[in-house]
């Protein structure tokens, strides 16, 4: 089945699993990134995600293709756009492979690459009504905790 890379609907992990299921594969690894209630000692109401749509979709497809080349895995990635309430999934990944090690590795590869490459941004909506974008340059030691994955 076809799963859109970007969606303003809840992430349905069953859809991602269905997209990568393969009778030749013996393992499916999944990952859901969910929004946390608090980061940097500040409470959130929600996280708002926005994307550079065309390039985000291209980059997510490229990551899936790289995971296939490196691990022999079939990978499906979906990211939420718009407001995501605390506790809901902002990103979902399913990776299937002939064996579990490759499935886990591909899933890990996909989320790690997504977080540094895919043009998607989050804006925190704090409990006190203020907002802040997380789009600053980060060094190896983040200046602030992120409320997402």
């Amino acid at each position: 089945m076809s799963v859109p890379a970007l969606t303003n609907l809840p992430v349905r992990i069953d859809d991602l699993i269905a997209a990568v299921s393969d009778p030749e594969h013996g393992g499916i690894a999944t990952f859901l990134g969910t929004t946390r209630r608090e980061a940097d000692r500040r409470a959130f109401r929600a996280i708002e995600y926005s994307a550079y749509g065309p390039l985000a979709q291209t980059e997510m497809a490229a990551i899936a293709a790289e995971a296939h080349r490196q691990f022999g895995a079939v990978v499906c990635i979906q990211h939420r756009i718009g407001h995501v309430a605390v506790g809901e999934a902002s990103v979902g990944i399913a990776a299937s492979a002939p064996h579990r090690a490759a499935a886990f590795a591909a899933c890990r590869y996909a989320i790690d690459e997504l977080k540094v490459r895919v043009p998607i941004w989050k804006r925190a909506h704090f409990a006190d009504g203020t907002t802040a974008w997380f789009d600053e340059h980060r060094t190896t030691q983040p200046a602030h905790d992120s409320p997402g994955t």
Binding site: A51, V91, L114, P119, W121
Partner: peptide, 10 residues
């Protein structure tokens, strides 16, 4: 052209 600031998805 697009100016892509550091990303923060996930």
């Amino acid at each position: 052209i697009a100016i892509v600031v550091p990303v923060s998805g996930g």
